[in-house]
C-alpha cells in the first residue's frame, strides 16, 4: 500500500533530501562533538585523582558541568538554546541550526565515552610509560589514545547513533532531516505509513553506523587475533 503522499515524497525528492540532511547534521555534529568532547574526556581522565596529573578541583568542576548538561533532556536543551543558536547560525530552524544543540547536547556524552575508553587502558602500561620518563602529553598521545583506539571507535559508533536519535527528536522543533518528515507527516497529519517508513530508514542508518563501527574496532584491535 503506497499512498499518493508517499509517492509525492519520492518524486518531489523530499525524502531523499531528508536523508541527506540527516547525514549532514549527524556527521558534522559528531565531528564538532568530538572536537569539544575528546579533549574534555581526556582532561577528565588525566585530572582524576588516580590520573596522570591529578587536579581534584578542576576534575570535580568539569564532572559537575558534564553531568548537568547530560541531565537536560535533549528536546528541552534544543529549545533552551534557541537564542544561542540564532546568534550563531542566524536562524533556529533547519538542519544547520540543529547542529548547534546537537553538539552541545552530545559533547558531554562524548566526554564520558572518551573518559571510559581511556580508563580501560591498563594502569600498568601507564606506569611503565612513566617509568621511562614519559611526560603527561606523551602519555596522552602515545599511550592513552593509541591503546584505547578500538574502544574509542566503538564509542564513536555509539555516539553517532545517539546523535542520530537526537537529530530525529529535533524534528519537533523544526530541525530538518528525517525527523521533520516523521513529525510533519506522521505526527501532524496522522500518516502512519510515512512515519513508519522514516523510522525504518532511521533503523537502517543506525544499523549501518553501528556495524561499521564494530567491524572497524575489531579490525584495528591488536589484542585478539
Amino acid at each position: 500500500m503506497i499512498s499518493d503522499v508517499l509517492r509525492n515524497l519520492f518524486t518531489s525528492g523530499e525524502l531523499v533530501s531528508g536523508i541527506g540532511e540527516t547525514f549532514y547534521m549527524v556527521c558534522l555534529a559528531t565531528l564538532f562533538a568530538y572536537v569539544i568532547g575528546l579533549p574534555l574526556g581526556l582532561l577528565l581522565v588525566t585530572t582524576d585523582k588516580k590520573g596522570v596529573r591529578p587536579m581534584p578541583v578542576l576534575n570535580t568542576v568539569l564532572g559537575i558541568v558534564v553531568n548537568i548538561l547530560r541531565s537536560i533532556p535533549f528536546l528541552i536543551l534544543a529549545v533552551m538554546l534557541i537564542p544561542f543558536t540564532r546568534a550563531i547560525v542566524g536562524t533556529s530552524i533547519g538542519s544547520t541550526a540543529t547542529i548547534v544543540p546537537l553538539v552541545i547536547g552530545s559533547a558531554p556524552f562524548v566526554a564520558r565515552m572518551v573518559e571510559s575508553s581511556a580508563k580501560e587502558v591498563d594502569p600498568g602500561i601507564i606506569e611503565a610509560a612513566q617509568s621511562m620518563g614519559a611526560s603527561t602529553g606523551q602519555i596522552i598521545f602515545k599511550v592513552l589514545l593509541p591503546e584505547a583506539k578500538p574502544s574509542l571507535v566503538v564509542g564513536a559508533a555509539i555516539t553517532i547513533t545517539t546523535i542520530l536519535g537526537y537529530s530525529a527528536m529535533a524534528g519537533f522543533v523544526g530541525g530538518g532531516g528525517l525527523g521533520t518528515i516523521a513529525v510533519s507527516y506522521g505526527y501532524n497529519r496522522y500518516q502512519t505509513d510515512i512515519m513508519l517508513l522514516t523510522v525504518a530508514l532511521l533503523v537502517v542508518i543506525v544499523q549501518l553506523f553501528q556495524e561499521i563501527g564494530m567491524r572497524l574496532a575489531k579490525r584495528i584491535d591488536r589484542r585478539i587475533h
Binding site: 600498568g124 602500561i125 606506569e127 617509568s131 611526560s135 589484542r223
Partner: peptide, 22 residues
C-alpha cells in the same frame, strides 16, 4: 629533570605492561 633521570633507570614488571596495540 626527574623525567630525564628516569631514562637511566629501566623497569620491568610482573604483568609485563607492554603496549598492546604495538
Amino acid at each position: 629533570e626527574l623525567l630525564e633521570a628516569r631514562r637511566s633507570i629501566g623497569m620491568i614488571f610482573q604483568g609485563f605492561h607492554l603496549l598492546e596495540q604495538r
